[in-house]
Amino acid sequence: MARYSQLGFVDAASPLMEQMIFFHDHAMVVLLLIINFVLYMMIYFTVQKFICRTIYESQFTEFIWTVVPAIILVFLALPSLRLLYMLDEIGDSALTLKCIGHQWYWSYEYSDYSNEISFDSYMIPTDDLEPGDFRLLEVDNRAVVPYGCNIRVLVTSEDVIHSWSVPSLGIKVDAIPGRLNQMGFYLNYPGIFYGQCSEICGANHSFMPICLEGVDTKSFTAWLNTLEAYQK
């Protein structure tokens, strides 16, 4: 049974996800008002033995129930278009992370440096999990990024269509063979953020999780130097 904390969205870790949650709450308020009004009218006219002819054939009433929904759509469209623009906008990025989907694992590349750093990320089998690890979400090599700066993500695939998705960041980018998609995000705080492939990509679709770790800039630089020395 779901607990109270599991009935909504995951905690937002980026400004984009915060805006998505805000828009969801905004739309839900409008939706609840519409549902309550329509339910009231249905009950009212069901209880009544007849509908007044002045209401049934009123042009003014038809005008009202045509204009009001249009106004409601405007209240939903304006914040929706603003959010879509924010999702599509990518500012100056401090780091580029390239994610490549395979059947059935992810590869990551840090191509901003003279020596390109790359590694594969596989799901840890259930028998090898440590106490406190999350089943079907832990990986052997996490993608590490610094928090507090803009990150650009390039996503592609080498075989079939995958989808790189991290709910707490508000990110879902399709990985399509022969095509390079991009999206940006900004981490508000350090932590470990999980996701999964959100496109049905074959028999082991549910076994290619995403594990993103946000650290401070100093720790990220140290991790990067260690990985670069190891790959040499």
Rank of each mutant, 00 (worst) to 15 (best):
P146M: 04
R82W: 02
W223F: 07
F185I: 06
N150V: 01
E116H: 12
S114W: 11
M1I: 14
L33E: 07
L224N: 11
A2P: 13
M86R: 08
A94E: 03
E130S: 13
G184M: 02
Y85N: 11
Q59F: 04
I100H: 01
M17N: 11
Q196T: 04
Y40L: 01
P131L: 13
A27C: 11
L224F: 14
L224T: 05
Q231T: 14
N115Q: 14
I100A: 08
R179I: 05
V47T: 07
I171F: 07
I100Q: 12
F220Y: 14
C99F: 04
C99E: 15
P190V: 01
N150C: 00
E89W: 00
F37I: 03
V74D: 01
F23V: 13
M17F: 12
H205M: 15
L16H: 08
I192A: 09
R53G: 07
M123T: 07
L84C: 15
T46K: 15
T226F: 06
T226Y: 09
C149W: 15
L87Q: 09
L76H: 05
S165G: 04
T126G: 13
T226P: 10
V38H: 10
A27Y: 04
L16Y: 13
M1K: 13
S107P: 12
W223N: 12
I100G: 04
P131T: 09
F23H: 11
A229P: 03
Y113S: 02
L84S: 11
L87Y: 06
L129R: 09
Q19I: 06
L154F: 06
Y44T: 00
R3N: 09
N181L: 07
W164D: 02
G184D: 04
E228V: 07
A13D: 01
I117G: 03
A2Y: 06
K49M: 07
L81K: 05
A222Y: 05
I72Y: 05
T221A: 07
T226Q: 12
L180H: 01
H162L: 00
I210M: 12
S219Q: 06
H102W: 11
R152C: 00
L39H: 12
L180N: 03
V47N: 08
P209W: 05
P209L: 04
L33R: 10
F9D: 12
N204C: 07
T46P: 14
D112W: 11
W65K: 10
Y110C: 02
I151R: 07
I124F: 00
A70F: 15
R82C: 03
S206N: 06
A203C: 12
V74R: 02
L180K: 03
A175C: 06
E57Y: 06
Q59N: 06
S5L: 08
L33S: 03
E57R: 07
L169F: 02
V10R: 10
L31Q: 11
Q19R: 08
D216P: 15
V139C: 08
A203R: 06
P125H: 06
M41P: 00
D25K: 02
G214E: 10
T66I: 15
I71Y: 01
V38Y: 09
E228P: 14
E57L: 02
Y230I: 09
